[in-house]
Design a protein around this nucleic acid. Structure first.
Lengths: 328, 328
DNA sequence: CTGAAAGCGCTTACAG
DNA sequence: CTGAAAGCGCTTACAG
């Protein structure tokens, strides 16, 4: 019942381990190994159900064909879909993914990065929960291949794939105003200095440039529902008639609250960043800014693989993909 | 810039690799190594930012503290939440998770199982897409530690964690009838012979025992929306006034279709298996059967770890956890 | 209290 | 065309 190794195949066939290894790795022809011998080796490998030990191989080669990915929360459909996109591509080229959740907890993120690096992953895709460039430096990646997704750090020389957050927020806010909203509020999720949120708020502000009044409110990501409720109460009677949500969690809280209020959705027009299925199924349906998750995932992986294959390269790619307004 | 190994620490301190290894693995006291020496070793390890090479360790020990998990689709919030629950527990005890998607594709599932076993995972948690016991045998786990979740195979000696699908479906169907529904339809997702779906249909049938009429309709999982639409058309005018959905995807399709129809939700009372956030945010809100995802995950992991630690054990645990009716 | 040595399973120069 | 040997970084008997 024990695992079969190269040695087992070699002994049964009366050849060396080296030869077996060469053949099984497709280097038989290149090294001019007898076709006949090659055939025998391959047959025996199948017969014995040989599976190469990746840890031995990893130890020897220094590469493991495993990449790590850290997201705030895999059960959030946004990150779930992103991981799925990455996993799909990775699978096609023989890579596996180790997925971990940081829960927006910097301490845990630091630990996770360390542990994943321990496990000799070849590279890391990271949706970081860090807020400032300076904090980020504790992760100390040096030459280690890392690509940031979703959130980026402009002042650091680290590759990233993000979207046109500012432009997307500006577009959807403009849409809100064009639809007749007089006074819009922006509900920003904390921590607001995460790059993507900062840019969305900026987009909101830009679109409001020549309006008499608009305001940004902070919502704690740990306590979204209660905070949204509180802010709604605070702005009551101030003439607001539109709300831009900086991410899907806030919009979900608003929907839940809105269902309880009598005429909430007559009073407020709600739009949101992040296009999730839910927004198409509630009444009224929510107009959103969609992010190209498949492309984000595919590009992050592609950039990461290039880094892995060219370890010396100092080139830094900061890719920004377009968002799409989905009016409903 | 190269990785620091045991040898580096040993050389800098003028001791042996063995000693360093012992100390760093907490066996210093047990082996009576000088406290002072231990201190020096630990300090140096921190100073050099030593990270043990898990592949060398795995190769030597035959254990890798990595477990694999295969689900149909990580972006489905049901599986996303399950994975999150497992990942959380696993992290606490120093295990990492390799997560893969089978997309309900048997071929891919077979490949994935092979690849994960190649990678020397210590064990596997599997939400299998296989339909019959006999098909399942190609996976050929032998002694390999595996725990099934969500779907189980009664005739195979493999551990599993599932829920009271039949009881849950029976309860919610009874609720439907008690609420005044006269004639209920069951929308079952294909393939209907997956254990969980089979049991839910059975529960539905049981609750309808003494009713004049009820029917089960198959919905293909590849084409849910179109199929639901078709079935709805087919049953029109036959006096149906209630629908039990065998999983959340069907209910989502119904909601989407229902929003387009004028008085859909006056005509039909809809209830569903799987409690997802969405069902609390649509109008009307959907009554559901909730599965204890955290407990499923925690127990699956616990059982798996026991298997990993007692490789010889022939004991088979088929755990069934209770569902909960959530009326809205 | 500590060290030298073997060996986990692989790949890759090197030698012939 | 093929084999013997070294070595990746670790842990664990064994020896003293």
């Amino acid at each position: 019942m024990k695992k079969v190794s190269l040695k087992d195949i070699a002994e049964e066939l009366g050849v060396s381990k080296a030869l077996v290894s060469l053949v099984l790795n497709g280097k038989g022809d290149e090294r001019g190994i007898n076709k006949n011998t090659q055939e025998k080796v391959r047959k025996k490998a199948v017969e014995l159900n040989y599976r190469p030990n990746q840890y031995a191989r990893g130890l020897r080669m220094g590469k493991t064909k495993t990449i790590g990915i850290i997201v705030p929360d895999i059960s959030n459909v946004f990150y779930g879909t992103l991981c799925k996109a990455i996993e799909k591509k990775a699978y096609e080229i023989g890579y596996n993914l180790i997925i971990s959740n940081s829960y927006e907890d910097n301490e845990k993120e630091i630990k996770l990065v360390g542990e994943l690096m321990n496990r000799n992953i070849d590279g890391l895709i990271l949706a970081s929960s860090f807020e400032k460039d300076t904090d980020f430096e504790v992760l100390n990646f040096r030459e280690f291949p890392v690509v940031l997704v979703d959130r980026k750090f402009d002042n650091l020389a680290i590759d990233s794939v993000s979207v046109t957050n500012e432009q997307g927020a500006k577009e959807i806010t403009s849409y809100l105003l064009k639809e007749g909203v007089q006074k819009a509020a922006c509900f920003a999720i904390s921590p607001t200095h995460i790059s993507s949120i900062e840019e969305r708020v900026e987009g909101f502000n830009l679109a409001n440039g020549n309006r008499p009044y608009q305001t940004v409110y902070d919502i704690s990501h740990e306590n979204i529902y209660a905070d949204v409720k509180k802010v709604l109460k605070d702005i009551e009677g101030q003439g607001f008639d539109g709300i831009f949500c900086s991410n899907n969690s806030i919009a979900k809280a608003l929907i839940k609250l809105g269902m309880k209020g009598e005429d909430f959705f007559e009073q407020y027009t709600v739009v949101s960043f992040d296009d999730i299925e839910l927004f198409d199924l509630v009444a009224p349906r929510i107009t959103t800014v969609a992010q190209p998750l498949d492309e984000i995932g595919a590009n992050a992986l592609k950039i990461l693989l290039e880094k892995i294959e060219n370890p010396g390269s100092k080139e830094v790619i900061k890719m920004v993909l377009p968002t799409r307004l989905i009016t409903r």
